[in-house]
Simulated assay, not measured.
Amino acid sequence: MYLIEWGLWQTAIEAEALRNEYEKEMTASEINATRDFYELDLEEEMHFRRVSERPCARGPVYAFNETFLEMRCGGSEEKRGLITIMTLVGLGPIIYTGAIVTGGSIYFDFFSPHATSLVNIIVTIVMSALDGAIIYFYLRFGLQFTRLEMLTSRHLIIRFNRKTQQVHLHRPNSCGGIVTFPWRTTGSTGIYPEDDSLSAGMRLGLVWHPSLTGLPHMEMALVGKQGQGGSELRDEWEFIRRYMEEGPHAVPRPRLSTQLPSPIQAFSAQFEGLGRFFRKSSWLFKVVLLMVWPAFVIVGTGHWLSLMLCWRPRWPKVIREAGMPGKAVPPVTTLSDYPPAIQERLLANADRWQLKPGKSPEKKPRKPRTRKPQENRYL
Rank of each mutant, 00 (worst) to 15 (best):
I122K: 02
E30H: 04
H47R: 02
R154M: 11
G75I: 06
N32T: 08
T84N: 06
Y62N: 01
G98E: 02
C73W: 02
N20W: 00
E77R: 10
N65M: 08
L130G: 07
A33Q: 09
R72E: 15
F160H: 06
E25I: 00
G104E: 00
K163E: 14
T67L: 11
H155V: 13
R159K: 15
G81T: 05
R80S: 12
E25Q: 10
Y107S: 02
C73D: 09
H155G: 04
L143H: 08
I83E: 03
G98W: 00
T84D: 04
V119R: 08
L69N: 02
F108S: 03
V101M: 11
S128N: 03
L88S: 03
L130K: 05
E53M: 10
E66A: 13
M46F: 06
E21G: 08
N65R: 07
G103S: 11
M46H: 10
A129G: 14
I106V: 13
Y38R: 03
D41P: 04
V123P: 01
F108E: 05
L130H: 08
I106C: 01
D36Q: 13
L118P: 02
G90K: 06
Y62I: 01
G74W: 03
V51Y: 05
I157L: 11
R49Y: 14
T152D: 11
L143V: 12
R35H: 12
G132F: 09
R140N: 12
L130R: 02
L151H: 04
D36C: 10
T84V: 10
F111W: 07
I122W: 09
H114K: 11
Y138H: 14
I83R: 02
T84I: 04
E149G: 04
A99R: 04
R54D: 15
G90E: 09
S128A: 13
F64S: 03
L118F: 13
T34Y: 09
C56K: 13
N32F: 03
I135K: 02
L91A: 10
G103I: 01
R147V: 07
I106D: 01
T102I: 00
G142D: 03
P113T: 11
A57N: 04
G90N: 05
A57L: 11
T152C: 09
P55G: 05
L118V: 12
A129S: 13
E70G: 00
D131F: 04
V123M: 08
L118N: 11
R80T: 12
Q144W: 09
G132Q: 08
I83Y: 05
T124Q: 01
F110M: 06
H47Q: 06
F110Q: 00
Y22T: 10
Y136V: 08
E78N: 14
L148Q: 09
N32V: 02
R50Q: 15
T124M: 00
I134E: 10
N120D: 00
E66H: 09
P60D: 12
E30C: 02
F48P: 00
V126P: 00
D109V: 00
V61Y: 05
R35L: 09
F111E: 01
V119S: 12
A115D: 14
T152P: 01
F48D: 04
I158M: 10
G90S: 08
V126Y: 00
Y107R: 03
R147M: 13
P113F: 11
I85T: 05
A99N: 09
S153R: 10
E39T: 14
L148N: 05
K163Y: 10
E78T: 09
R140D: 13
A63R: 13
E43K: 15
I94Q: 14
T34D: 14
G59Y: 02
L139C: 14
N65E: 09
S153K: 12
A63E: 15
